[in-house]
């Protein structure tokens, strides 16, 4: 099941190997509509900035190296100086206003999506992971996932950004700019992926000890694949048997106070919703790959990988660990 979801991601990765190696490379126009819009602005401002730095440095150098004798004749200096100041201020003003106008035009253009949003995702930033709730007018079609969200290619998706603790910032460099996530204030953003692929997001406002390990993945799927993914996410957890059933019980006792699995009585909200954890590519906020070995290691000692995170070392026995793992692998 996992591999099916991963195929488009792999295709996208092989198509742009460089992007995969540098998932936060915002100097290239990425796969997002917003990223493409702001890319010229980025380079334009950078270019102007470089020109200004070079010009000023050169003038400073010239001024410093010029011999005192050449500056003789006070009247000359005065008349020339005022003219030069006038020219400098004039040119700067024109250039600055031009840039302000340009920036305003572009930010105004990307303030709202060109077509109506496909849907709204409530993005909730926690210390130190991300929660995504797909809103829907039909409450039965609302579901929550963590640290990995899927969206359909070519459709804008609206983000409602909320924080439960401190200020975070949501940034998917190859798709869009940053938007701060502030407790008590609902910020709104949107993004649209133009190409299928996996895009890395990152918290970009220092938010505590594990700020660096607070990343997420956005998987852009072709629409029909996305719909399949959404339908699967809407399913509650399946019934279990054997070791997995044992694991479900241990999970309820040892993990259910913090984690949630839809369909069971584990309804904790401190940690991520794990209803479909096995369908995700990474765990621990895109810190570790999601394979049985890393999953076991993470559950056994989260404090080793993310010291200071709210998930404590539970002191599970080998058997408990194995049972929990086999339960989690049924949550596809």
């Amino acid at each position: 099941m996992r591999s099916r979801a991963a195929i488009p991601a792999l295709l996208a990765l092989s198509g742009s190997a460089q992007a995969a190696n540098r998932p936060l490379d915002y100097l290239k126009p990425g796969g997002g509509l917003i990223a493409r819009e702001i890319w010229p602005l980025l380079w334009g401002l950078l270019g102007v900035g470089i020109v200004v730095v070079v010009l000023i440095s050169a003038l400073v150098l010239v001024g410093a190296l010029r011999r005192r004798g050449e500056a003789a004749g006070a009247g000359l200096i005065e008349t020339h100086a005022s003219r030069w100041i006038g020219i400098g201020v004039g040119v700067s003003t024109v250039v600055l206003f031009g840039l302000v106008g340009w920036s305003t035009a572009i930010t105004a253009r990307i303030a709202t999506p060109p077509t109506p949003s496909a849907f709204t995702v409530e993005v909730r930033a926690h210390q130190w992971w991300w929660e995504f709730t797909y809103l829907n007018d039909n409450p039965q079609k609302v579901f929550t996932t963590a640290n990995e969200m899927h969206l359909p290619v070519g459709r804008p998706v609206r983000f409602l950004l909320k924080s439960d603790d401190v200020i975070h910032s949501c940034w998917v460099p190859t798709l869009s700019g940053k938007t701060d996530v502030i407790p008590g204030q609902n910020n709104v953003a949107w993004l649209q992926a133009e190409r299928p692929g996996t895009y890395r997001g990152q918290c970009s406002e220092y938010c505590g000890k594990q700020h660096a390990h607070m990343a997420f993945a956005i998987v852009a799927d072709p629409p029909e694949l996305f719909e399949r993914w959404r339908a699967r996410q809407l399913r509650p957890a399946p019934a279990t048997s054997g070791e997995a059933a044992q694991g479900a019980q241990v999970f309820g006792m040892r993990c259910g106070i913090c984690h949630r699995v839809r369909g069971g009585l584990a309804q904790g909200r401190l940690g991520p919703d794990l209803t479909h954890v096995t369908s995700r590519q990474t765990i621990a906020a895109a810190t570790l790959p999601n394979d049985p070995a890393h999953l076991s290691a993470w559950i056994a000692s989260p404090q080793h990988f993310k010291p200071g995170a709210y998930m404590p070392d539970l002191g599970l026995s080998g058997q408990e660990l194995s049972e929990i793992r086999s339960y989690l692998t049924t949550l596809e």
């Binding site: 039965q140 609302v142 309804q267």
Partner: peptide, 12 residues
């Protein structure tokens, strides 16, 4: 009594 709640929320 089921459909006007998110999945399973009516139980609690």
């Amino acid at each position: 009594g089921v459909n006007s709640w998110p999945q399973g929320a009516w139980k609690i």
